[in-house]
Design a protein around this nucleic acid. Structure first.
Lengths: 231, 231
DNA sequence: ATTACTAGCTTCCGAGTAC
DNA sequence: TGTACTCGGAAGCTAGTAA
């Protein structure tokens, strides 16, 4: 895969940023060492190794050297660059949860039916949720941790409001898919004032999820939250 | 600059491409070692080190581990990515030459005045060259090497032609700047059939370069060839 | 000034193996 | 199966120094 030794990466990068792609640039080993945070001797060794491997070329220029990165050296860095890019970009923006359906306490359904939320659902999600949230108890510590950090990610944000008597907190919605597509327009809710623990996941959809996905209380269920779809 | 150890880069990249940015993914040290071309023990050590440094988080998941890259780990990779990008992109596409002006042999000027070339100059460079090329003898081995490889780069290409009697070879033109801008619309020529050595540089411009830049035979002169401006 | 050799130290890795 | 310990060797680094 990567022929080049990792230790040499910073050295080539430093040379490239000095313009050594097309020109022989004057670089002293002392100066180079300082930039890559190594000793002068290490820098010298790097240049020797890189030269022997055909990644750079050097020309005596008085006492110093002129150094240039070869095509071979350049393409090695490009290759590494591509690896990094795909690792960073392809990181699927998708958080998976697994758990068991538990009977809803009716509470979520009540809040979601309030006019102050319903009109925001309609406006921002494009539908009014089926009256009744799906409650999922997460089974693994891993998922509980992920649940706890869900709120950090960009979300569809419903403002809190007041009905004169009391105030209601904000709600963050995360588009989600149930059981690999059995329901594909659900949303996981994160409430400002949650009434559950971190091991509970509350999910809504335009239709009854239990009916659509044919699941009942106690069944295992998979929820995939889609990140990166919110502008 | 980069806190992360270079040896750990491939490990994190591998984890990220498995989706470990947002989820705890199951990875065995054996499998991981195989991907980063190290032993199982090395992979295990990497994970331990990365965990202790706060670049990844792990959760026991049965016998295996669930591994996730933390924000800290992610931003380290992003930082390295940025370094690579600027090294690759900012690599100034500019080749510098230095040499001394020598008296032209008149030959270049003759060829450049031929109708077959002149109309191509007008069309592709936007001007007809001043009758008389500037001839520069390169002073340093470094520049001679660069001169030799100049022809490999993308250029403004003038086709060869025949006048019935004899044929004339192609000419590659490279936009160039003389003495830091004294003349900024010159062009270095690389001829198919060069009449000079690799240590000679032939330059044209719409006006007399000697007059514009106030130089005479024997003077030192700097020529900067601009690459990457040719589509 | 430079570059780069040598010696010695530290880090990293792989094999064997415990759990 | 897994992970990760110890240990011996290889690789990488630094300091000193030669040229």
């Amino acid at each position: 895969m990567h022929e080049i030794k990792l230790q040499h990466i910073l050295t080539i990068v430093e040379l490239l940023s000095k313009g050594a792609r097309h020109n022989f640039v004057e670089v002293t080993t002392t100066e180079l060492g300082k930039h890559i945070d190594r000793s002068q001797q290490a820098a010298s060794k790097h240049l020797l190794d890189l030269e022997n491997s055909g990644y750079i070329e050097r020309m005596k220029k008085g006492q110093k050297f002129g150094v240039r990165v070869t095509d071979k050296g350049y393409s090695e860095i490009q290759s590494l660059f591509s690896s990094l890019r795909s690792a960073l970009e392809l990181a699927p923006a998708l958080i998976e949860f697994e758990g068991r359906v538990v009977s809803g306490m009716g509470e979520g359904a009540y809040y979601m039916s309030l006019e102050g939320y319903r009109k925001q659902f309609k406006e921002k999600l494009g539908y009014e949720p089926y009256p009744g949230t799906l409650n999922i108890r997460l089974t693994n510590q891993i998922f509980m941790n992920a649940r706890r950090e869900l709120g950090k990610h960009p979300s569809i944000f419903l403002e809190g409001f007041s009905d004169g008597t009391r105030t209601y907190g904000w709600v963050k919605c995360f588009p989600a898919v149930i059981n690999d597509g059995a329901v594909d327009n659900a949303a996981v809710l994160v409430l400002e004032r949650t009434h559950y623990d971190d091991n509970m996941l509350e999910v809504i959809a335009p239709m009854s999820i239990k009916h659509e996905a044919d699941i009942k209380n106690g069944d295992r269920v998979k929820v995939q939250v889609q990140l990166g779809q919110i502008p």
